[in-house]
Amino acid sequence: MAPVDSPKQRRFHWRGLKTFLAVLVLYGVLALLSPEKTMEAAKVSLGVLEEILPILGVVVFFTAALHYWLDPRKLAKHLGEEGGLKGWGIALTAGILSHGPMYAWYPMIEDLRKHGLRDGYIAAFFYARAVKIPLLPIMIHYFGWAFTVFLSLYIVLGAWVQGILVERIEGRS
């Protein structure tokens, strides 16, 4: 487990600067080829940004609250190596209840991982996010009860099996 506050980690640096510049160049090229569509893309991006900023705000407060109250040794017990069945339950429930795009949760997951959160739980959390409780009535409307119930059950089961497989594969190598 990496130390949480090593001097190297405390030093601030922008992450993904090259990718950001590459996307800016891509926008520049697309603006030359199709200015209207590119303007539309920029507007969509601004809309997405407006949508995720409040979620990132929640993530900041949540991460700070976890650090404030959380005992790293206890985290290792509940969501680390000794997590067991309870840990799987927490990871799957958190995945089902989490909102917003997956990438908004990456910073918090990274933080918890430094405290010992198991990779299997992370994989299970991400896959369980496919169950969207607020959208279940819409899914039922389009695809029916049976489809919605079976799909949701198999997603949760699949998330759990994937988590186990991630740990088996990582453990083997």
């Binding site: 996307v23 800016l24 891509l26 539309e40 893309a41």
Partner: peptide
């Protein structure tokens, strides 16, 4: 403050992803 700095450092990558989302939805 630590949590905010952590998120802030990821902003270039986050903005890049948001930019790609816009391109996908428009094109």
């Amino acid at each position: 403050k630590k949590a905010a700095i952590g998120i802030l450092s990821l902003m270039p990558m986050m903005l890049a992803i948001v930019g790609l989302v816009g391109i996908f939805q428009a094109f």
